[in-house]
């Protein structure tokens, strides 16, 4: 993390398509009520990489240092050598992905034949999933195939996902699935 306000300003003096524009040479003395401090002044800056397409654009996340500690602004990272501060509409809307009332915030469970979701605890949900994994795997484990070759697998559990996970998450996820004997391991790259 070496994003500084200074470099921020420096980069904003360079345009996107290689055309030069002038420096924004203001004195910063407030002349009118509108020339207030930026809303991002009391925020912590962290860098991120956009979660949509695979260009890998850099963005700066402003997290409020006051109140609830939530995101107040996300915009392009001017020091990122690929996007140089720019973002498409999806990237530009990142803050609304984070601060979104439609997000799931608790584990939910749908019982057999039920027509509704029930809020459940993480502890209960993960415990129940682990039990089902064991039950299905143990009842459907193939040690040898029809030819008699050792295969040590189960085809009764399948997994899809996810290109939306981080590299490190992908690695431990596939390791867990392969340790269970899954061969139906697929994700977005296949479609």
């Amino acid at each position: 993390m070496d994003v500084t306000r200074r470099s921020f300003i420096k980069i904003t003096g360079v345009t996107t398509a290689g055309l030069a524009i002038g420096k924004l040479g203001f004195d910063l003395s407030p002349v009118k009520a509108h020339a207030q401090m930026l809303k991002t002044a009391y925020a912590r800056e962290t860098t991120t990489i956009c979660c949509y397409c695979a260009v890998g654009c850099g963005a700066i996340v402003h997290t409020s240092l006051k109140g609830d500690g939530r995101v107040i602004n996300i915009e392009g990272d001017p020091d990122h050598v690929i996007n140089r501060g720019s973002l498409c509409p999806k990237g530009a809307s990142l803050s609304q992905l984070v601060e979104n009332e439609n997000r799931l915030t608790d584990p939910m469970y749908r019982a057999p034949y039920s027509s509704e979701w029930k809020k459940v605890s993480w502890d209960w949900a993960l415990d129940q999933i682990a039990r089902r994994v064991k039950k299905t795997r143990d009842a459907n484990f193939t040690a040898k195939n029809e030819k008699g070759d050792v295969v040590n697998r189960t085809t009764a559990i399948a997994s899809v996902g996810s290109a939306a996970m981080d590299n490190e998450e992908c690695w431990i996820y596939q390791a867990l699935m392969r340790s269970l004997g899954l061969v139906y391991i697929e994700h977005q790259a296949r479609i």
Partner: peptide
């Protein structure tokens, strides 16, 4: 507000 603070 951005322009007064040196931003585009």
């Amino acid at each position: 507000d951005r322009v007064y603070n040196g931003q585009l």
